[in-house]
Nucleic acid binder design. Structure first.
Length: 271
DNA sequence: ATGGTCGGCAACCGA
């Protein structure tokens, strides 16, 4: 079967619920992974998502900050939440899609929101940047993020790093800017390689094609300037490496009324 | 070189 999965940093799920509804009516992904829901679990708009066809929900939200959720048309079996850097931040949730979803070989979906890291790219003076680097190190060493060679897994989310030269509008002008500094790019790459993950977006759209999923709110005219970054990612385990057929970055959603600064990224996989 | 904008939630913090 064809499986479609969307990752989207929504920057408040309650404020943007109508925009999410518009997107899912058009794109109808089987699985929707949201980040920055900024919503405690007991205030999550479950009924609205149920009406949209998402009966199965794995929540990990908190008041005011962060928050991730996996919403699905397909039932899943096992939900897990990992904590990183000894903090209670809600930055990860995973779900295992197995026999109830119709898969003899289960598929694990990890949904991440990596810390943004503040403004100054120096861990000795900026604790937020130190936290980001430590978080990436923990992603690298986490045993739960190392699927076996035969194991089917997908890791998505706002990873807050644009690792490649053509993941930013100007490699030269971004090299000292948090999200594209060499140490972050190296640590994200190390985390990806340690788990044997494939950067699916770049398999289907190799460099030097520019790929962006985020445009700053601060840009007066984001579309004309087009100073974007690829902060959102879809990785697959080796067992799914050749199963992804398309990646769609829904850039139009950046131009919506009261948009998120991130746009939806959708992968189609034959599973 | 600098400041520019969001959202949560009621001060600023985080992005």
């Amino acid at each position: 079967m064809k499986l479609t999965l969307t990752s989207w940093n929504i920057n408040s799920v309650r404020l943007r619920i109508d925009l999410v509804a518009k997107f899912v009516k058009a794109a109808r992904p089987d699985i929707l992974c949201l980040q920055e829901t900024k919503c405690p679990d007991d205030a999550f708009p479950l009924k609205r998502f149920k009406r949209l066809g998402y009966d199965h929900v794995a929540l990990n939200g908190q008041k005011g900050y962060h928050g991730v959720v996996v919403l699905s048309r397909l039932p899943f079996e096992q939900v897990d939440v990992q904590s990183f850097c000894g903090k209670t931040d809600c930055r990860h949730v995973s779900a295992v899609f197995g026999e109830r979803a119709g898969f003899r070989d289960p598929i694990t979906v990890h949904n991440f929101y990596v810390p943004a890291g503040g403004d100054i790219p120096d861990p000795t003076v900026n604790p937020k940047f130190a936290h980001k680097l430590a978080f990436l190190d923990e992603m690298r060493t986490s045993e739960k993020l190392k699927p076996a060679p035969s194991e089917r897994a997908i890791l998505v989310g706002d990873l807050n790093v644009a690792p490649l030269e053509h993941d930013v509008w100007s490699h030269k002008q971004m090299i000292r800017v948090v999200s594209h500094t060499p140490i972050e790019c190296e640590k994200l790459n190390a985390a990806r390689k340690a788990g044997g993950w494939i950067d699916t977006m770049r398999v289907l759209a190799p460099e030097p094609e520019k790929l962006y999923t985020w445009w700053s709110y601060r840009a007066a005219d984001w579309r004309i300037a087009d100073r974007g970054r690829r902060l959102d990612h879809i990785w697959t385990s080796d067992a799914l490496a050749d199963r992804a057929s398309t990646i769609k970055i829904a850039k139009d959603y950046r131009g919506a009324v009261r948009p998120s600064d991130h746009v939806p990224v959708t992968a189609t996989l034959e599973v």
